[in-house]
């Protein structure tokens, strides 16, 4: 099995089309696929349909840059750096994006159903909430393209007469999953260290899987401890070598989140003018990761570099 190593530019050109439904791996400030997200913005992809659980810096950038038409999500924020994502909030209030709210468990179950080939999945979570009562997508959009014909359905438990109501959710089968991993073997086997969030379910549910990774390692190395591996080699369609590829979000064992950068982003994100300056300064000019990292600077990269025993940067000033 040969590894399909590509540049981000080639991978985005080949695999991502306007209007595609895209799952983003990671969670708020951790392992966001930032390198490929910046490339999607440079290639000016439009009308993307994001399906996420809790995002996150990558979602903020894509929405802010005008690449996104609709979002299904449970949470749109960057943890304490933006408890509600500034670009997400603005686009929602100005009705530039359509948003469908679910819970984290809903979204994860939907990815899982997609991955397992289940026609639907049922849960008790959210009964009698407005999450299951109301819909953010317009009725005209239902059943067209990737939009499921129903957000969900409420029904009586079909098996247990005393079971009460259940929430029946449609599966997710995104066109593309974007995952950032620590390691890919030169056979294609993918290893995510630390928490996997819903990355494995997202990848298995998707038609195309693009993995950016910190290191490509020999097959001998990655198959010595197969218990640690996350995805088999044949599931990965393209691999992009991406040192610091999740910056400014964290990558366990490699680097912490970058509080300096996330605080800068927090200042520049709320207003359209300053956000455009952010894109001009941090996204559009850099066609190589080396140039981007040079802009971040060796001092800040050393500050966030993870201690190899702990997996994060102890004592990092995180205010």
């Amino acid at each position: 099995m040969t590894l399909n190593i590509m540049t981000a530019a080639d991978a985005v050109r080949k695999y991502i089309k306007d209007g595609d439904q895209i799952a983003l791996g990671g969670f708020t400030v951790n392992r966001n696929p930032m390198l490929i997200v910046r490339e999607i913005i440079r290639q000016e992809k439009k009308n993307l349909y994001m399906v996420v659980h809790s995002q996150g810096q990558s979602l903020e950038l894509l929405i802010g840059a005008g690449c996104v038409q609709r979002v299904e999500l449970a949470y749109g924020g960057v943890a304490r750096f933006a408890p509600t994502g500034n670009r997400f909030k603005k686009a929602f209030l100005e009705k530039k994006i359509e948003v469908e709210d679910y819970s984290n468990y809903h979204m994860v179950l939907r990815f899982m159903a997609g991955a397992m080939g289940l026609p639907f999945v049922a849960t008790k979570s959210g009964i009698e909430s407005d999450i299951v009562r109301l819909s953010g997508f317009s009725p005209e959009s239902r059943g067209k393209g990737n939009v499921p014909s129903h957000k969900l359905k409420i029904m009586d438990d079909p098996l247990d007469p005393n079971g009460g109501q259940v929430v029946v959710l449609p599966p997710l089968k995104p066109d593309v999953a974007l995952i950032h991993a620590q390691y890919v073997g030169d056979d294609g086997t993918c290893r995510i260290c630390g928490l996997t969030f819903a990355d494995i379910e997202q990848a298995k549910a998707a038609k195309t899987v693009i993995v950016t990774c910190e290191e490509i390692v020999p097959m001998d190395f990655i198959r010595e401890e197969p218990d640690q591996n996350s995805l088999p080699h044949f599931m990965i369609d393209a691999v992009i070598p991406a040192p610091f590829g999740a910056h400014p979000t964290a990558c366990h064992k490699f680097y912490d989140y970058d509080p300096m950068h996330l605080n800068l982003f927090k200042k520049m994100a709320p207003e359209d003018d300053s956000f455009k300056r952010y894109l001009d300064e941090w996204v559009y000019p850099f066609h190589s990761q080396e140039d981007y990292l040079e802009k971040v600077g060796i001092r800040d990269l050393l500050k966030i570099r993870a201690n190899s025993a702990l997996g994060y940067a102890p004592g990092l000033d995180r205010r």
Partner: peptide, 26 residues
Amino acid sequence: STLMGTYENPQQRFPGSGGACDAASM
């Protein structure tokens, strides 16, 4: 933890439930 107003006429947006709805349910 979701919004004020309505989807048609939103007045304020919060991040969304995340896992809170799940915890409150289960």
